[in-house]
Design a protein around this nucleic acid. Structure first.
Lengths: 210, 210
DNA sequence: CAATTATATGAACATCTGTTCTTTATAATT
DNA sequence: AATTATAAAGAACAGATGTTCATATAATTG
């Protein structure tokens, strides 16, 4: 952390993210936020131009999500060499979202506003989904050249790898809202990696007949 | 159709579903609905007790979704015998959602209110997801006994089969909102079935060493 | 035809919303 | 210490919302 002391502006953002992720952007009133921050509604306007501005700041925060930073700073070749373990670490990142308050709230905010807010939709599509799919697709391509995984359409494989992760995460979200047990859902992240790898890794027979 | 003439009540539901699925329940005002129906806001109250009642009626309509009626009336054994083609027909049902106005609207309504409305969440969880997963799981179990597919955890397989279908459908929704091309996304439904079947069907070698 | 029910209207309502304004208190800077 | 910027409060606003009410018209029924 740059500054251990939380500014009021940061507090407002924190509270807003919490409320937006719980009730959605529109149903959360400026009064709700102010009350939880501990000031009056009008006081908010000393820190933000308006409710929109708060959302805008949080939208920018979406880029700090663990999902956006999945492959941060690492080269494709480097990652491809890791084999199954890179897939495992991706799945773990998704799984851990629900154990980290901020990441969970960001993901819930994203999901709730996806159909309503075109900016959020753009960020989701570009940085949460497409960027990751493309990067993983490149990794798969190298793995195929290295005979680590079987030859197939790498882009399709990337879609197939990511889609259950997003979906399972959403499911965990929903179960948590109703305080239902989500433990069996959480185990799916790892099982997904295992079965995905079993289905796509090069087996002895495959390389023998190559 | 029972009656070819649309009653005003049906028209209100139709318009409301359209608007709710586009803008969400809360952001859609009673005035919006009335205007598109062609009456004044107060006139709506001769047909429905309130805005809530309209949503309630539409929630009941969710049960008519193609996703809920996936396995309607057919026995597990019968379906298991169909092999790959049952999976194909499931995937096709999902794919066709975006080509049928009402089904598409119901799915969008569902997705938009999932985080906000606990009744919708219950229906989704029970009838859209769990019921289908369990039924498919039973089908997989029989397929395993029949040596049609490889032995594995049938419940996990069902999760892995369904999750991309839901996710791809959501993706198609989102792309359509922004009028972006979704053709490459739509092809994933069939590819998913193909690869799923290739990964799980019993091959010659499997049965040979049995 | 008369009576009743169903449907429509327009005005009004209370409530909630985001925002602005003026004024007061606090903190930072000179 | 004086000045200036920052943050807070409280009241008020204009607009939108769901709903109600009294009333008028149309449709149905006896």
């Amino acid at each position: 952390m740059a500054s251990p002391v939380k500014t009021k502006k940061e507090l407002i953002l924190e509270v807003s993210l919490k409320l937006f992720s719980e009730k959605g952007y529109n149903p959360t009133s400026v009064r709700d936020i102010a009350k939880e921050v501990g000031i009056t509604q009008s006081g908010l306007y000393n820190h933000f131009k308006g409710k929109d501005a708060i959302l805008e700041a949080l939208i920018a925060d979406l880029m700090t999500s663990a999902v956006v930073k999945l492959f941060e700073n690492k080269s494709i070749e480097e990652l491809a060499k890791k084999g199954k373990s890179i897939l495992f670490s991706i799945a773990t990142t998704f799984k851990l979202i629900s154990f980290d308050k901020k990441n969970e709230a960001l993901f819930k905010l994203l999901m709730q506003e996806l159909y309503k807010n075109s900016t959020i939709r753009d960020i989701y599509n570009e940085h949460f989904y497409q960027a990751n799919v493309k990067k993983l697709s490149s990794i798969f391509f190298i793995m195929m050249q290295d005979e680590t995984i079987k030859h197939a359409d790498p882009l399709f494989l990337a879609h197939e790898f990511f889609s259950p992760l997003f979906f399972y995460q959403m499911q965990v979200n929903l179960l948590k809202i109703d305080k239902k047990s989500n433990s069996s859902m959480v185990t799916l992240f790892e099982k997904h990696v295992d079965s995905f790898w079993e289905n796509n890794k090069v087996t002895k027979e495959d390389s023998f007949f190559e």
